[in-house]
Every structure is written in structure tokens, then in C-alpha cells.
């Protein structure tokens, strides 16, 4: 037994960085990166992809702490209340900092004022996919089938209140008749139902739908980015098909409000440098994400605009807790 444990001790170390000379003051200790989701999700994955090279560049270890709960707001609140010394960071994202502020009326932080937003890591579009046997390959066909059927079309998503759900709401408004939103607990079960043909359509984020699109188990109907996505050039955007719907999921790096500007800029520089490497570019392209290029000020502005953009959509969706 002691042997068992001893061996795993060798393994259970965090992301160790080589010993590099570092600047005075910051970073002086291990950096805690809070991921407000359970391990295994897209946010968790992105955090791990970026934290490893970041730890090497900053010369300190970065440990990932998963603090899931309440649409990513529990972990976000913990970071908002932490000391702004640059040693506690957060994977900010569309749920906690874009949609959440409108979705949870008694949220205990301000998505803009209570954080120092540092860098946008990635944006990824959502995609409407259909079971190949459903015979829906374009929004025109979707609209026609939606009007023709007596009960309307069903569309699955990974859950109520997600950006994918909001796109279903926007599409329903554009067609003048609500699409039957069928929420699931996570993208996996929803995708299973679509592949099995129990639900004909799904609104999913591209990273989780990518492998199923490549394998042909589902077909792409429309992409929610402004331009066609380089990894899936055959799937037209909503705009091309006559509906002005654009909405992308995003993840970024943020810290508590009041972080020193020098530290914020330092991290922003390093993150952008990491995202610009060929290796990361290739990795992101495969997953269907676009690496971020914003400065810290631009990212702060980005978050502010997201909060404003989603507020009316969330109200229209009826996904209003309490």
C-alpha cells in the first residue's frame, strides 16, 4: 500500500516548469488557475492546453483547480473575491461572463467591474447539425420543414441557458415560430439522441461536434460564425443563408479586479505569444476554435459587449431562474 502511494507521489505533481530566472515580485509562487467547470469539459481542456506552455514561459508552476457549479458562477465568484496579486486566475467564459449575468438575477459579482480581464484565449462558433436521415441540409429546408410540421421541429442542445440554446431561441424568433428546445445534460447525451434519430437537429459548439461532422454521423446545417470556418469550409454561415445570427462561444483568462497593469500585460503578452505558435494554431484549428488576439483592454471591452448583447436574448428565451 505504501508503495502504491509512494509511486503515485512521483506522478501527482502539477505542471512543473523548468527553473527560469524570473523578474522581481511576480510571479513569486505557484499560480492557481480556477476552471469553473468539472474536469473533462471544453473549458478544462483549453485551460490545460494553455497552462502548460504558460507555466514554462512564466517560470512558475500553474495548478488547475476545478470549481464547478451554477453555470460557472461559483468558481468565478471565488476568483472575484481572491487577492489580486496575480497568483489566482480564472478561465472566464461566455457562460459566467456573457450569459450568466443576465441568467442569474442574484449573481454576486459584476462580470466587468469585479475582474481584471487579461486575454481572450479562443472563440469557437456553434453549429446546427442534423441527423443525415432527417433530410435537412440547409436553413431553407429547416424553415420549410418547421412550418410544414404540425408540432414544429425539435432541436437538442447541451443544456438550458447555454449559448447553443440562445441560438435556438434566435432562430425561432427569425422564423416567427419557436423551435421545440429539447435540453440535455451535456453535449454527449444530446449528440447520442441526434445520431439515434430521436431528435432530428442539434445546436452544438463546434469543438464537440467536430469529430461527428468529420465522421459523417451528422451533417452541418449552419455555422454561427461571421465567415465560413476554415476547418469546415463546406458548412455555410447563418448570414449566407439569410439570417443575421452570429454568436460564438469564448474562453479567456481573467483575474480579480485590481491586478497590477504590468502583471496583466505580461500575462497577455505571453498568452498571445503562445497562441501564435504553429503548434497551438494547429491544435485549435483541429478543435474548431480561433485563437484570440486581443489586448487586455480590448478583452475587457469584449466582455462588456457580450453582457449587453445577451441580456435581451436571455430574456426572450425564458430561461430565467427564479
Amino acid at each position: 500500500m505504501s508503495n502504491v502511494v509512494a509511486r503515485r507521489g512521483v506522478l501527482a505533481t502539477s505542471v512543473f516548469a523548468p527553473h527560469v530566472l524570473r523578474a522581481q515580485g511576480w510571479p513569486s509562487q505557484t499560480i492557481r488557475l480556477v476552471v469553473p467547470y468539472a474536469p473533462g469539459g471544453t473549458t478544462d481542456l483549453m485551460a490545460r492546453l494553455v497552462s502548460q506552455p504558460l507555466a514554462e514561459r512564466l517560470g512558475v508552476a500553474i495548478t488547475i483547480e476545478n470549481r464547478p457549479g451554477a453555470g460557472a458562477t461559483v468558481g468565478s465568484l471565488a476568483v472575484a473575491q481572491a487577492a489580486p496579486d496575480g497568483h489566482t486566475l480564472l478561465m472566464s467564459n461566455i457562460a459566467s461572463h456573457g450569459i450568466g449575468p443576465s441568467l442569474y438575477p442574484n449573481i454576486r459579482y459584476d462580470a466587468v467591474r469585479d475582474f481584471s480581464h487579461i486575454a481572450l484565449i479562443t472563440e469557437n462558433p456553434s453549429v446546427f447539425v442534423a441527423n443525415p436521415r432527417a433530410g435537412i441540409t440547409s436553413l431553407a429546408e429547416l424553415a420549410q420543414r418547421h412550418r410544414a410540421s404540425s408540432g414544429g421541429l425539435d432541436m437538442a442542445t447541451s443544456g438550458a441557458g447555454s449559448s447553443n440554446h440562445m441560438l435556438v431561441v434566435l432562430m425561432g424568433r427569425a422564423l416567427g415560430r419557436d423551435i421545440n428546445h429539447i435540453p440535455f445534460r451535456g453535449a454527449g447525451p444530446a449528440m447520442t439522441a441526434v445520431i439515434a434519430g430521436q431528435v432530428p437537429l442539434m445546436s452544438d459548439s463546434l469543438p464537440s461536434a467536430a469529430s461527428h461532422l468529420r465522421a459523417g454521423s451528422v451533417v452541418g446545417v449552419a455555422m454561427s460564425s461571421a465567415q465560413r470556418h476554415p476547418a469546415f469550409p463546406a458548412i455555410p454561415t447563418f448570414r449566407e443563408q439569410g439570417h443575421d445570427i452570429v454568436g460564438t462561444g469564448w474562453f479567456g483568462l481573467s483575474g480579480p479586479a485590481g491586478m497590477a497593469a504590468s502583471v496583466v500585460d505580461h500575462i497577455n503578452r505571453e498568452v498571445r505569444a503562445i497562441l501564435a505558435t504553429a503548434e497551438q494554431q494547429a491544435r485549435f484549428a483541429e478543435l474548431g476554435g480561433t485563437p484570440g488576439r486581443l489586448s487586455a483592454a480590448e478583452y475587457t471591452d469584449y466582455v462588456r459587449r457580450e453582457v449587453e448583447y445577451w441580456a435581451p436574448v436571455v430574456r426572450a428565451s425564458g430561461a430565467q431562474p427564479d
Binding site: R8, G9, S14
Partner: peptide, 11 residues
């Protein structure tokens, strides 16, 4: 200390 800190490295 041995199990949870040294080995499991809990936060």
C-alpha cells in the same frame, strides 16, 4: 500529510 498533501496534492 503523506496521503493527501504529498501524494494526492489536494489544493
Amino acid at each position: 500529510w503523506f496521503v493527501f498533501i504529498k501524494q494526492l496534492d489536494i489544493r
